[in-house]
């Protein structure tokens, strides 16, 4: 049986996913950046509702996935959670540690992360230090100025829910032409343009799940708060 779809705007994805993440206990600033990653991941053909709901539900069931640490020595650095690693937290930190922590050996590994595409999406839409990001079946090179080339054995590898280990290194000579799936910045720009003109069609039940988590941020109304709300009385025939 086919699933039903609903169409939303990219801004709605940001608004609802941010607050859905807060609804499962994610700090607001992290939630904002997670929503940014989800928003951009749409350009890679992924259903943002399914992915976001999966990530947030996992965190809701096991908050320890979000308690990530940076471990390291002179030879290596690793980001990992307790048991597994939630992309909600690690997807952002991965980019920032790469950009800002001055890793001496130009190598960072994120262990057992879910939905690595979200981490890539967050990294892809910022400027900064060039990086090569890899997980099984996927290689991506970001030139640090908005340019991106992705090669993957197939869409399944790119959109995998994981968990997988992701490695960041300094880009060398670029990518060997190895893989059936080849995505560049211009493909992503074209996809973004289509989304802006048509909206984002996504899985309706998964979106309903996001909205349900979002509702955890709302405060129940009562007669007193209704009357105290901003505006004229409940009837205004001025």
């Amino acid at each position: 049986m086919s699933r039903t779809h609903t169409t939303v705007s990219l801004n709605e994805i940001r608004f609802y996913v941010t607050r859905a993440a807060v609804g499962v206990g994610v700090p607001f600033g992290v939630a904002e950046d997670f929503a940014t990653a989800v928003r951009w991941s749409v350009c890679f053909g992924i259903d943002p509702a399914i992915v976001a709901l999966s990530c947030l539900t996992a965190l809701d069931l096991d908050p320890s996935l979000g308690r990530i640490k940076l471990l390291g020595s002179r030879e290596w650095h690793t980001i990992r959670g307790e048991g597994g690693t939630s992309v909600v937290f690690a997807g952002i930190s991965m980019t920032e540690i790469w950009q800002g922590a001055g890793l001496p050996q130009n190598r960072l590994t994120v262990l057992s992360i879910d939905y690595p595409l979200l981490a890539l999406a967050y990294a892809a839409f910022g400027d900064g230090r060039p990086v090569k990001i890899q997980w099984p079946g996927v290689h991506a090179v970001l030139d640090g100025a908005g340019g991106i080339v992705i090669q993957a054995v197939d869409l399944e590898a790119l959109q995998t829910r994981g968990s997988v280990d992701v490695m960041l290194t300094a880009p060398d000579s670029g990518l060997a032409n190895s893989g059936d799936l080849h995505i560049t910045s211009s493909d992503i720009d074209a996809a973004n343009h289509r989304l802006l003109c048509n909206g984002v069609a996504l899985d309706a039940p998964a979106w309903a799940g996001i909205v349900e988590l979002f509702r955890r941020c709302l405060v129940p109304s009562n007669e007193q708060s209704r009357l105290a709300g901003a505006g004229a009385g409940l009837v205004d025939t001025d």
Partner: peptide, 12 residues
């Protein structure tokens, strides 16, 4: 980057 990884509650 290291600080906010350890203190995500201050990120916003």
């Amino acid at each position: 980057a290291e600080f906010v990884l350890a203190h995500p509650e201050h990120r916003h």
